[in-house]
Design a protein around this nucleic acid. Sequence first.
DNA 1: ATCACGACCTGGAGGC
DNA 2: TGCCTCCAGGTCGTGA
Length: 275
Amino acid sequence: MPELPEVETVRRSLEPAIGATLASLWTSGKPLRLNRPIPKAKLKALVGRTITALRRHGKYLLVDLNGPSSLLVHLGMTGSLRLHDAKDAREAHTHVVIGLGDGRELRYADPRRFGQVDVFERAREHEHPSLRVLGPDPYASTVDGDYLFERSRGRGTTLKSFLLDQANLAGVGNIYAAEALWRAKLKPTRRARRLTRVEAAALARAVRTSFDEALAHGGTTFSDFVDGSGQAGENAEYLVVYGRAGQPCRRCKSPIRRTIVQGRATYFCPTCQLS
DNA sequence: ATCACGACCTGGAGGC
DNA sequence: TGCCTCCAGGTCGTGA
């Protein structure tokens, strides 16, 4: 579910939590991704801190608190981070509840438990195992055609895998890889090393255009994505290729094709995305 | 080092 | 109604 536009939508929707103070903490006791336990003691130590800012890098949401620490949240496939009234019934698969002491609660829920919740020291942010390996956020000024061109030299993998590799660009997932490749008129199975400088520039623009559109529509919801206030996104209606197998290409009317590339559903237009 | 693949986990959809 | 199989927005460990 949540790729960069969805995580950014969550980030924006949680801004009303800035200024709130962490007052209590509850965890389910169930482990998340890689069977790793939620660091309850580190989270408990944050009680008394105030939320000062909400940031995002790629698909990671960073909640800054006064003092040296921040909270890291990754939504995995099915995670949600929502502001609730403390009186609201707790939804199934809730794993972290942070009481804000003002009648509100920040709740992390994640049915599949592919997500991540952690605490880190901001001064050592770049050393965090999950953040350390990330490439630049596609909205960073350093990301342009030249960056993608240089980065793709000597890479024998497909463009699709290249885009999904968070070490290259942080934030692209399976939906927007397909969307961006369609916009740039590039075939998902094209080898990254074959990208020309002109194509790389088109791809950099295409990634951002796809994200801009999705953001304007509040993100893509298929079944379970919601923002911090529980609102679903409308972007599924506007997708150009993802999930549109058999439907006409929005450029040339050819039926969109679905294939599997490296184990993941891949949508493209066989006419527009010839190479 | 790079790359492809399967595993992780739950729930929903569809077939019988 | 049940039971089975397949599929899903992400990441990471393994082995070639």
